[in-house]
Design a protein around this nucleic acid. Structure first.
Lengths: 203, 203, 203, 203
DNA sequence: TATGAATGAGAATTCATTCAT
DNA sequence: CATGAATGAATTCTCATTCAT
């Protein structure tokens, strides 16, 4: 039997994923600059040259990881938020799901948190659109709450979204870097969303 | 006239500072890995080799910047907090002073925020002690407030300090990277400390 | 209907020629070293691997071009010279036909002139027999003329053949490289053969 | 005694020359593309990296060789021609000096003849000015001869300069490549200039 | 035969660090 | 102390060639 086009494409996609995943592990462990292409190739069990059949260059691998993984994170978060109607519940959900995702994908978190920050410096042209979309999920909830009269009108969504994300991010960064976890996800998520909700809820 | 020991030491210290400051600018602009020793030397107006009379290697320059700058930040913050006695005011002060310092020293902020995060990866041995001391200024205030019965007892200072710092940090990261500022320091500091205080204050 | 042996061979030859011609264009445009096998394959509309069914390696393609094209050039020149009996006319014919062929096959000329010269360096074993045969067409005419008492006896055919060919070659190289042509083929051929004839003719 | 600026510059120039000469030998032997930077470095007895203190890249080395060597050739030829007043003698001198220089500097000749030809292909921007100046020495002599009524007026200097140079060049190429020399310089120069002079002289 | 994905050896270039002056 | 020319290890990326399909 001759191989169908579909099989071939599956095989291609499979190798692409193997490289993406290998790179994710290596970038997370060593950092972008210390990571060597040959190391990623070895981890992905392909030849060095093969990587260049799927990516233009080293930068392109990092960008692709961002795109792929952020899309997954974005889709997942949207799905989870859809189930809630109450803005208060949505904020709580965001915090919990965010920390849960981080916990389950430490390598991805590491890259998004650490490498993302310097990416803007060496990839001038790269606009991290997906990240902004993710942040805007928060400000959308806040605006929704304000319209429903649940959240105070003087809250600035543009500041609050960053403050809330920053709080969660710093928390998870601590986990990612320290590898030991003093507090469980649920407790941390509860506390952090709690501060914000108390700060934002109309009284 | 022969140079006195003091003069010599002053001159030494002066050149050391010139290198530190040049490196701060270059690291902030290019990032640690993209920054070249020769570029730092040019910026500091010394020879490449001279840098190695004051620092062991490139890593050492980055660590020294952390140590020097974080010490200044730490001293300054402590000084400002000393003037306040009320934990609530102290939290507000922390937020305002932090954002003000960031605003006045963007290069330093850039390095501490961006390069710091990956430093732990390539400088295994480096324990960022000063940073932890800085974070603990926050948890100390929280504990103080809890002892005075002002803050809720169920607040976990270890989480809260990170959440609060993270909120401020993400806010300032946005400024540092975006170079345009939608909200002024005072407004942002007020809002952020506000969320937390409302969340923490006993009602 | 099963394909006959002949048909199969024709098809083979057809693909071989397609590759030869594609390579001629690419080598002429990029030069041997800058030319990529994949580019030749694309130009010939075959797969990369297919090329290796017809040629041993990249060098082999270049050599084959020489052989094929030089044979054509050689056959054509011999045919044209056959029509003339007078050595003087033959020299004039050689100049004219040579420049005409160059003009009609710029890519081939480019390769023979430019790549040929360095070929001897990277293909030690390759003796450019066909080229020597071509040069010897000139010395044969000279010797013939000397025997007939038309050309001076003190002319050294070994030098003269190179001088004459070099003059034509430099002229055409100028055309090939410059892409603009100040003088038409006939004028140039006339002038060049003229110098030589005047220099060689017994007076 | 402290080293003077002059000494330092002499040392620098000395190393530059060492690299130029090493590269000349290697390029001549292997050709530009087959020549490796590391091989040139070894031949020049410097580290690989040192080459990049004196040249921007591999292309730059080749261009520098052209510039340096062609200037020498040009100066030398001008000097020799200055001693002659008669255009006929000048043509003879040009042929003799050209072949003598080639004979004494085979490596340089090799590079100018072989690598020069393909240079235009991989160094699009490089205009070989010096070479054109060299060619124009010939056409200047021809024009001078025509003004003095010695050479025929219907000679086109633009064609003749190329024909004459091409004749000499092909002759010397033969020597350079074959490494065996059937005819001595003087004989060859005499014959070649003879053809042209007979062809050009007014009768 | 034909394909084209995969291979991996190879090379140019960079740059932190050294050390003779 | 200061210099900056020299070093050479290290790394990304290319591309001729192979071979399973």
């Amino acid at each position: 039997m001759k191989h169908t086009n579909k099989n071939v494409q599956l095989r291609k996609k499979e190798k692409y994923n193997r490289i993406i995943n290998a790179a994710t592990r290596i970038f997370a462990k060593k950092g972008f600059f210390k990571a060597k292409i040959s190391e990623i190739a070895r981890e992905a069990d392909v030849a060095d040259g093969t990587i260049y059949l799927y990516f233009n260059n080293k930068d392109d691998i990092l960008i692709s990881i961002f795109e792929e993984k952020m899309q997954t994170v974005l889709d997942n978060m949207k799905e989870c938020l859809k189930k809630e109607t109450n803005p208060v519940k949505k904020i709580e959900t965001f915090a919990r799901v965010h920390l849960e995702m981080i916990e389950k994908n430490k390598d991805v978190a590491e890259i998004i948190q650490v490498e993302l920050r310097q990416s803007s410096k060496f990839m001038k042209e790269y606009e991290n659109l997906k990240f902004h979309q993710y942040l805007n999920l928060i400000s959308d909830i806040i605006k929704e709450g304000q319209e429903q009269g649940i959240f105070r009108k003087d809250i600035l969504p543009g500041i609050a979204k960053r403050a809330f994300f920053g709080a969660l991010d710093e928390m998870s960064r601590f986990w990612v870097l320290s590898k030991k976890k003093k507090y469980d996800t649920t407790t941390a998520a509860k506390q952090i969303s709690d501060y914000f909700l108390r700060g934002m809820i109309n009284t």
